[in-house]
């Protein structure tokens, strides 16, 4: 089954419709037109660039290049996790905890999936490794960012409760236990919801893409299930690690709540 070629002029038609939407929002004074156009332009430029990079990467098929690409993606994801938190740990901890948590979970699960389950030859074949890692990082990033944001923001708002529990002789783990659970929940909920709705409410993007590219639905479904599971694993372990490290960092060696380690939100 061949794929129908998509030409740039056909994309231009789609972009005209986005411009139309921007015009409508501007006419309705919703103040969204500009950011909509900028975001649309970013999509085109970023995806076109990554297309070039991936073409080169797929052609070269070298472990070094794949690893370099993977770490670049990781660092950008780490920056994004940091930017999405309202009150973040200062001194590089917000970036560090997010990045290390994503590295531990996403990289481990991706490499395991590649070697044990899919088994391409060589195991780092970019056609499999890069899209898989990309989906892992994208979702783990959302989970880790949501969880850390919830953790630090709730700790800030409930500092009096946490300190009162400390005063009564509770350990820091107990004093922040409820907040940790809440943070874990908010990190994992998007993935649990996505799995519950998959196929019934939404057709997942990867599966849709594979079918558009000519794969039989049965195979696309199997890949989608695999990806859903690995993403859940990555998000789960990443969130777990980030919340554990983040909440530890909120207390010092004498189990004092140290909110001076959080930055003030930008107005």
């Amino acid at each position: 089954m061949g794929v129908i070629e998509l030409e740039w002029w056909q994309l231009a038609l789609a972009s005209l419709m986005v411009v139309g939407l921007a015009g409508c929002t501007a006419a309705a004074r919703l103040g969204m037109g500009k950011s909509l156009l900028i975001a649309a332009a970013r999509t085109v430029i970023q995806l076109a660039l990554i297309g070039l990079v991936l073409e080169a990467l797929f052609a070269a098929e070298r472990l070094l290049w794949v690893a370099l690409m993977a770490f670049t993606m990781l660092l950008i994801a780490g920056r994004e996790v940091m930017a999405r938190q309202k009150r973040r740990l200062i001194g590089g901890w917000a970036f560090g905890i997010g990045t290390v948590a994503m590295f531990l979970s996403s990289f481990t699960v991706t490499v395991l999936t590649l070697i044990v389950i899919i088994g391409p030859d060589p195991w780092y074949r970019p056609q499999y490794a890069i899209p898989l890692l990309g989906m892992m990082l994208g979702n783990t990033m959302t989970g880790v960012a949501l969880a850390l944001d919830r953790l630090t923001d709730t700790a800030w708002r409930q500092r009096a409760v946490i300190e009162n529990r400390l005063m009564l002789g509770q350990r820091w783990q107990e004093a922040i236990g409820d907040i940790r659970r809440e943070a874990m929940r908010s990190g994992l909920m998007p993935m649990i919801n996505a799995m519950a709705a998959a196929g019934v409410v939404s057709l997942p993007g990867m599966m849709t893409g594979q079918m558009l590219a000519g794969s039989p639905p049965a195979l696309a479904v199997k890949y989608q299930i695999l990806v859903m599971f690995t993403i859940t694993l990555g998000t789960g372990f990443g969130t777990l690690a980030a919340v554990a490290a983040g909440s530890r960092r909120l207390f010092d060696g004498r189990q004092r709540l140290r909110l001076d380690r959080l930055s003030a939100p930008k107005a």
């Binding site: 400390l166 005063m167 002789g169």
Partner: peptide, 9 residues
């Protein structure tokens, strides 16, 4: 610290 706070409340 938590043992200290349990004693000195």
């Amino acid at each position: 610290a938590h043992e200290w706070r349990a004693r000195v409340m």
